[in-house]
């Protein structure tokens, strides 16, 4: 025999249904930043800042082709930006701070979205086949981690010179040229790998950012092509100096 449960009384006036339970009151969302869409916006905005930095950084790097002095001047100019209104390295430091915050926020949002996604699918598929660009989730998450690891190395190498043959007290151009000498081919390789990751990350990230901000409504195809083109330019632009140095430029 099955169990019985009774609902509603047997007389004419019946208790009203659970009125206080319109599920439209979400359990907890923690405001804009707590919402998945909010986090995506954070990713998009911080991503955009980082892309802006990358573009400038790439252009700066290309100055090496105009000669070591031009490059050093540029590095110097960065540090004296805004002088004499503000002291040496102020603007740069502010920019670095913004960049740092962006990286941190970007990573925070990425991690919390990934965890959210993990909770949304506690039982994995036995078989799962991608029907779209299946690599994107992996490239975005693991690619992002790769980029982060690379950044650490990169800063140690070219900013602090810790792992650079020329050490900290050298000119940026020297460090760079010394860093990419042919016998240090593996350094160049690290850069190449990292940049391919960056390129893939941006290829998806750029149009994804537009989509997240709601600007991709009718132009998805164009945006995707543009994102691909921009990523390619950035990758090639970055790779030009190290490769050139490796094959003998700057000697």
């Amino acid at each position: 025999m099955t169990a019985t449960i009774e609902r509603g009384s047997a007389t004419a006036p019946v208790t009203s249904p659970a009125k206080a339970s319109p599920p439209s009151t979400p359990k907890k969302t923690g405001g804009f930043l707590g919402s998945s869409n909010g986090k995506k916006v954070v990713m998009a905005v911080t991503g955009a800042i980082m892309v802006g930095f990358l573009a400038l950084h790439m252009l700066g790097n290309l100055k090496i082709f105009l000669g070591n002095d031009s490059f050093n001047e540029y590095a110097h100019a960065l540090r004296t930006l805004g002088e004499p209104l503000v002291p040496y390295r102020t603007v740069l430091t502010v920019l670095e701070a913004i960049l740092l915050i962006s990286v941190v926020l970007h990573m925070w949002a990425a991690i919390s979205l990934a965890r959210r996604a993990g909770r949304a699918r506690p039982v994995k598929y036995v078989a799962k086949k991608s029907q779209a660009q299946g690599y994107t989730t992996h490239i975005m998450r693991w690619g992002g981690v790769t980029i982060a690891l690379y950044l650490v190395w990169h800063l140690l190498d070219l900013t602090f010179g810790v792992v650079n043959p020329k050490g900290f007290d050298s000119s940026p151009a020297d460090r760079m040229i010394a860093g990419f000498q042919p016998e240090r081919w593996w350094v160049t390789l690290i850069y190449v790998i990292a940049l391919v990751m960056v390129g893939l990350h941006l290829r998806h990230g750029l149009w994804s950012g537009f989509q997240t901000l709601g600007w991709a409504k009718d132009r998805r195809r164009t945006l995707k092509l543009a994102a691909g083109a921009v990523s390619a330019v950035i990758v090639l632009g970055f790779l030009a100096p190290p490769i050139a140095i490796m094959i003998g430029f700057g000697k």
Partner: peptide, 24 residues
């Protein structure tokens, strides 16, 4: 706002624009 918030409250993940959904 309310629909997106409800979607979160139900425990669905966030979209990272991978496009698997529209493909199926």
């Amino acid at each position: 706002k309310s629909m997106v918030d409800q979607m979160d409250a139900e425990g669905f993940g966030g979209c990272t624009n991978t496009g698997e959904c529209t493909a199926v």
